[in-house]
Design a protein around this nucleic acid. Sequence first.
DNA 1: GAGTGGTCTAGACCACTTT
DNA 2: AAGTGGTCTAGACCACTCC
Lengths: 233, 233
Amino acid sequence: MATPLYQTVIDTIVARIAGGELPSGAMLPSETQLGVELGVSQGTARKALIELEKRGLVQRAQGRGTFVTVRTPETSLFSFFRLRRADGSLDMPQLESESLRRRAATERETGLLHGRPAEVIEIERVRSISGRAVAHEVSVIGAPMFPGLAERSPLPNTLYVFFQQAYSVIIVQADERLRAISAPQASARALGIAEGSPVLEVRRQAVDVLDRIVELRRSITLTQDQDYLISLS
Amino acid sequence: MATPLYQTVIDTIVARIAGGELPSGAMLPSETQLGVELGVSQGTARKALIELEKRGLVQRAQGRGTFVTVRTPETSLFSFFRLRRADGSLDMPQLESESLRRRAATERETGLLHGRPAEVIEIERVRSISGRAVAHEVSVIGAPMFPGLAERSPLPNTLYVFFQQAYSVIIVQADERLRAISAPQASARALGIAEGSPVLEVRRQAVDVLDRIVELRRSITLTQDQDYLISLS
DNA sequence: GAGTGGTCTAGACCACTTT
DNA sequence: AAGTGGTCTAGACCACTCC
C-alpha cells in the first residue's frame, strides 16, 4: 500500500481543477459516479472529497452536490487581506493606483519562484480604505507563468481571483514574515505619511494548490485605524 | 439526527481530557474498546478520534495507539511564540524577569474573560533571545480560574504548558491583532531601546479547548533580528 | 420522485509496534 | 503472536434540494 487509493483520487481531482478542466463553480461528479469512473468504492471517493473540502478546494452541499470553490474578490480578501476594523469586520479596500513593470529577476527571485524565471513582472499598488491610503504593495511573479499579463493593466482588484480565472493558478496559502519598521521613503510618499513613522512590513510567499511558490510580495501597511488580524492554532 | 453520534463521542473525550481524567500523554482506549464503551461502532469511534487528531488534541500512531497530545515548552513555543530567525528556525527564548500582581478586573476584562472574573492576575514578563531582550508581555487571567497561582511565582517559562498540567486548562487557539507602533515608555525601558522606536504590538486572546477566553495578553516585540512568522490559508 | 451528500454499521485485510 | 491504527469495501438509512 505505497500510496493510498484515496490519495490518487485526490491527486486526480486536483489535477483536473488545476488544469482548468473543472473551472471555478463547476459541479463534480457524485461520489458514486466518481467511484465508478476511478475504479474505487463510493466510500473511498467520499474520503477524497472530504479531504478536498477541508483544503477549501471544493464545497459540498447536502442534496445539491460537490462544487469547485468559487473565489470572489470578497472571499479572497477575507482570507488573504488581514486588515480589520476594531470590531473585526472587513472594510473593502479600494485600488488607488497601479503600475506594472517587466524586468530581469534577481538571483533570490529566480531561486524562490516556481520555474526559476529569468524575467519577472512587478506589480506595484496602493490600496485605500475610506479614502485613506493604507497599504503599499509590491508583488513579483514569474513572467513565463503569466503570459500576456504585463499587457493587461489595469489588473482586477484581487490578483488571486484573476490568477485563478485567467491562468488556473489557485493560491491556497500565504507564508508571511512581519516586522515593525520605520516607513521607507517610497512607501511614506505613497501612503502620505511622515518618513520614519512606524509601519507594519509584511513579506509574503504565496503558494498555489500544486505547492509552488507563485508570488513574492512586500506590503507596507498602516496600522493606525486598522489592525492586522490573525489566528494561531 | 439532531447531533451526530460521532459528535457526542468527541464531546465525551474532550470532557475527559479537559476534566483531567485523561492527562497529557495518557493512552486512550482503542477504537474497538471505545466503540463498545459508548455503544457505537468502531467506525464511528474512529471518525471521532480522527477529528480530535486534526484538532491537535490527541495523536495517533499505527501499531501503538492513540494518546493525549503532550505539550512541552518546545511544542508550545513552536505554536504560540512566532518570533523566528531569518532562516525560519526557532531560537529558544529565555525568561529575563517576571512580576505578578493580583488586582481588580477592568470592565473590559470582566466582559471578555471566561467566568466574568471580578479579580484578575497580571503577569508581566520580559523574554530574551541570545542575551537580547526581545519581548515585553503582560498577561491577564481570571483569578478564580487559577486558584493559588499568584503565590507560585516564579512561574514556568511557558504559561500554557503550566495551565494544562496544573489546571487542566488546554489552550488551543490564539486570536491576535497586530500593529506597528512607537515603543511606549514602559516597554522601551524593559527592552532597553529608545522610546519611540518602531515595535510590533500583539494583542492576544487565548482560547481553550472548551472555547473559553482564558487569557488576554499584550506583547511588545522587537523585530530587528527576528521576524514574526505566520501562515494564512 | 430522483438524486445528492451525511451518518452509521460491519467486516475484511494490511502495516506497524510491542512483547 | 497479539494488539493497534490505516485502508477499503458494501450496504443501509436519513436529510436535503430540485424538478
